[in-house]
Design a protein around this nucleic acid. Structure first.
Length: 640
RNA sequence: GCUGAAGUAGCUCAGUGGUAGAGCAGCGGUUUCGUAAACCGCAGGUCGUGGGUUCAACUCCCACCUUCAGCUCCA
């Protein structure tokens, strides 16, 4: 028998007989490693542990901690679920059943049956039963014709459709227990590795994500190697729900939604404090960065949108109505109107770049099913800006925009995820300009050592873009900031020009950008990010003065007045309640600081400081406390 | 828009074919208290909206509105 040499991650090389499996390699090292291994990476591909290795290879055993290990685990769990569903509902047809970031799902066509929460419990119990049977996952290579024959016999149109695209290739099947599936793998050695299972939800999902196709039922689930890990996961989900901005927004009186205005928040006084602080911060920064603020009409004639192309491409998302023979629309975007500011006089090359910022209120008719708290609203307050520059100024503008984004996000302690989207099919504009711009965006990101995902062909038809995404408490991604180059929409359609050095008229480039994205979405994001405990500069209640008894009433009022005069958002809680009661209440309202004042403090002109989430942090002279908090507010110190 | 689930007091929730319940919040009293809930009392609801079935509907049926999860969408 021939031998092959296997290289391990630590660089060691060992010889094994040809046809050795991952399980045998793991078992040869230790029983513990065999027990913990879920799959094996062979020359960069993830394989089943019991697949034979025939050639010299570089391998890495994958355990739960590795993504590849988790993927195999969850993918196998989805097969196990399919087996359970098939045994309970014979004759069902299967779509696809992959692992996802957290868990797995399977899309299933159950004919006329609609899955109920009770069904999920039954399926879950069946899965546990089947896992205990510890059936091995068996990989089988089949010819394409045999594969088609199998699913023709089984009358599964979905798998046949998938096979259609794999024509001419060797097809792999996986068997375990009574279940057989078309699948590229890899899988666990056997179902017994799956110990703790929870089916989370069932929801409709269009076959292949196309709404013209039939809607299948998608069951989401998650599984873990131990009950303890499952319990911890479920607990984390519950914790995340406590951060939900919809819940915190209500509890902290930040904003409310009402049936009377679906998709548009009522900003409450506390929410407006945060809104105004964000606005103040934004304006201060943009003033310093050479922006000029403008404000353009909300209600405009539809001719504008015909010219911009929105009427043709975006009409379904617009609110419009007729008035005296004229069709008007609420603006869904600010960009076209900013060109009117640009065009209001002749621009010289010396005027550029022109940076117009606008805190604009937009309305977009989002389909009802898309609405969700502050993350997806129909009335949007955008921190928009349009920069008009010469082509030779693009790189410099992009660089300073990335700096601005980085600066903003560091203030909040947010960790953004960058995406770079490049030229889509059917894009408009000079190809040379496109490739230069894409290269420029890429270079800018790389020089600043910013990691990003490349999204090929995902740019707008008028230019490439950099997007910033951030996750909510439940791990869903939301786009926040965006930097979009535009060679076409504004410059061409609105015939923008500047007079160049040589006296000729030339076309500027436009850059659309938002940093918060929208005040609504950003408010939702930071509410969840801070779990409602805003840093002091944003906190609706920065300080509460709490006298112990009426005897300190006068002194407490003096403390309150001193803070007020210093510009601090302060409240005086002189209600006839016990100090414990007040502390509990203000702690839950997440006031940044409580100043307890009793006899000791009154006689010494001091305050006993209690910081939110930290508790009693000692006694300070009143002046010193004011000095500290003013500094904290000015520096926008992060308190978490 | 699609599939499923849900909507009861300001909030969180219980209830069920026979005239609506709790805790917290609110209001009125008593209590003046040192770092996360003092005590007593009062008030509060066309049970999302509109139809239907029934002697009787918060409860069953239908439609609509809104919310939630997912899909789709997301210049």
């Amino acid at each position: 028998m021939e031998t092959i040499s296997i290289k391990f991650p630590d660089g060691k090389i060992k010889d094994y007989p040809q046809g050795i499996t991952g399980s045998e390699i793991a078992g040869g090292i230790s029983q513990g490693l065999l027990r913990d291994s879920l799959a094996i990476e062979v020359n960069g591909d993830v394989w089943d542990l019991n697949r034979k290795i025939m050639n010299d290879s570089e391998v890495k055993l994958l355990k739960w901690a590795e993504i590849g290990g988790k993927e195999a685990y969850w993918h196998s769990s989805s097969h196990l679920m399919a087996e359970a569903v098939e045994s309970l509902f014979p004759g069902v047809k299967f779509g696809i059943g992959p692992s996802i970031d957290a868990g797995f799902y399977y899309d299933i066509d159950l004919g006329g049956h609609t899955l109920s929460p009770d069904d999920l419990i039954k399926i879950e119990q069946k899965m546990i039963e089947l896992a205990k049977a510890d059936s091995s996952f068996v990989r089988e290579e089949k010819s394409w014709e045999n594969a088609v024959a199998y699913f023709t016999e089984k009358k599964d149109p979905y798998k046949l459709e998938l096979l259609d695209e794999l024509k001419g290739q060797t097809i792999t099947f996986y068997h375990h227990g009574k279940f057989t599936d078309l699948c590229a793998g890899p899988h666990l050695p056997s179902t017994g590795k799956i110990k703790a299972i929870k089916l989370l939800s069932v929801a409709g999902a269009y076959w292949r994500g196309n709404e013209k196709n039939k809607m299948l039922q998608r069951i989401y689930g998650i599984s873990f190697p131990s009950q303890k890990e499952l319990d911890e996961y479920l607990f984390r989900i519950e914790e995340a729900k406590r951060r939900d901005h919809r819940k915190l927004g209500k509890e902290l009186d930040l904003f409310v939604f009402h049936d009377i205005a679906p998709g548009a928040p009522f900003w409450l006084p506390n929410g407006m404090i945060v809104f105004r602080e964000l606005e103040k911060f934004l304006r201060f920064e943009l003033d310093g960065a050479g922006y000029q603020e403008i404000s353009t009409p909300i209600l405009v004639k539809k001719e504008l949108w015909e010219q911009s192309g929105h009427w043709a491409h975006y009409k379904e998302n617009m609110f419009y109505f007729d008035n005296e023979e004229t069709t008007f629309s609420l603006k869904p975007m600010n960009c076209p109107e900013s060109t009117y500011v640009y065009r209001h006089r002749i621009r010289s090359y010396k005027d550029l770049p022109l940076r117009y910022s606008e805190i604009g209120r937009l309305h977009r008719n989002e389909i009802s099913g898309a609405l969700g708290g502050m993350f997806r609203v129909r009335q949007i307050t955008m921190d928009d800006a349009h920069i008009y520059c010469r082509p030779d100024q693009i790189i410099e503008e992009i660089n300073s925009l990335i700096d601005l984004v980085e600066r903003f996000y560091s203030i909040f302690g947010l960790k953004p995820q960058y995406n770079l989207s490049t030229k889509p099919n059917g894009a408009m504009g000079d190809p040379q300009l496109w490739s230069e711009a894409e290269e420029g965006l890429k270079t800018a990101l790389e020089q600043k050592k910013i990691k990003y995902n490349l999204k090929p062909k995902d740019g707008a038809f008028y230019g490439p873009k950099i997007d910033v995404q951030i996750q909510d408490a439940l791990g869903r991604d939301w786009q926040i900031a965006t930097i979009q180059l535009d060679f076409v929409m504004l410059p061409e359609r609105f015939e923008l020009e500047y007079v160049a050095e040589d006296g000729l008229r030339k076309r500027p480039v436009a850059i659309h950008r938002a940093i918060f994205g929208s005040f609504e979405r950003f408010m939702g994001i930071i509410t969840e990010h801070f779990a409602g405990s805003f840093p002091t500069w944003l906190s609706p209640t920065q300080v509460v003065v709490l006298p112990i008894t009426d005897t300190q009433g006068e002194y407490a009022a003096k403390v309150y007045q001193a803070l007020r005069r210093a510009g601090v958002r302060v409240e005086l809680d002189d209600r006839n309640e016990k100090i414990n009661y007040k502390i509990r209440e203000w702690e839950m309202k997440k006031a940044s600081y409580m100043l307890v004042v009793g006899e000791k403090e009154r006689t010494a002109t001091t305050v006993s400081v209690r910081q939110h989430k930290k508790g009693d942090i000692g006694v300070l002279p009143l002046d010193k406390f004011i000095e500290n908090i003013i500094q904290e507010i000015q520096q926008k110190t992060l308190t978490i």
